[in-house]
Amino acid sequence: MPHDNREAGQKTGSIDLSAWRSRAAKFETEIAKAVIGQERVIRLLTIALFARGHVLLEGDVGVGKTTLLRAAARAVGGAYERIEGTIDLMPGDLVYHTYLAEDGRPRVDEGPVLRAGEDLAIFFFNEINRARPQVHSLLLRLMAERSVTAFNREFRFPHLVVFADRNRVEREETFELPAAARDRFLMEISIDTPADADTRRQLAFNTRFHDGDSLIASIEEGILAYDKLNDVGRAIQTEIKTSDTLERYVVNLWQAVRNPAEAGIEIPGVDTARLVAAGASPRGLSYLVRAARVAAWLDGRTMAVPEDIRSVFFETMAHRIFFEPVYELRRDRIARELVDALFETVPVP
């Protein structure tokens, strides 16, 4: 296909997209050395980085969420800051740090968000659901506008990507993320223990995986130049075409998510006419298309196809769909079934 294989000389302005594609492939292989058995999660993380979107990882304790994000941060390069979500964390703790200096006078320094200035590439929020809503709302602005106001001036972070994780085991002393905050994440990726027996054996017995710090240190640093990613992302968005048919398809999907019953979607044990309360925001839809374009580019195509939409749909859209309260408790299962049914039902092309 002429459209699939137009690899050579794929350049937009000064960005050589095919060279960047091989860098992306290298990024994926490097991360896969540190986090094994999570190829799909790594692919989604790569898509998120090139789509310039924030990522929320969730999963059980000890499945490698933090390792994965640290590895990704190292491979992206640039300044990296992290903070642990705790119940007494306040928004101020993110932007400044007060202490008594050696000379006995009070000092105010920049907090983790401001410390690296504009170079901040990755801000890693660990256990985000332990932080209070006040912190979440600061995060809202940081994510949406990539800026904060502190010390009477505005700080901008043009290269910033927020990674956050939360575990889904505990519910005590946690604060559910508000819908507005969740909507600002490009993807919400669920990460599970690898099912493959060989991978499990390696994780348990291979000493390489026992020491997280040396594992991270083994990853090549700065494979993706963090300060170029914005330009690359823009180039990808302009280069990858979406046809009228695909646009119609996405709109149909959107329609079907808002009104599953009208689209003829049936889920056992669920009244689909009363399932979806709200959600699937226009921002979510634009994120979806952005992610799909990146997926197409990573696959070496210049056009986005329905497979691209399908490959990123669950992670980009599921957390934006809000169910009626009676169905919220069974959210995980219903969301998966809804998305599966969606792609089985909405006609393409």
Binding site: M1, P2, T245, L246, M303, A304
Partner: peptide
């Protein structure tokens, strides 16, 4: 499927 992809998503009907 390749042809259909070209026609519908590549907007390359002739190809």
């Amino acid at each position: 499927f390749a042809a259909s992809r070209a026609v519908f998503f590549g907007e390359a009907q002739r190809e």
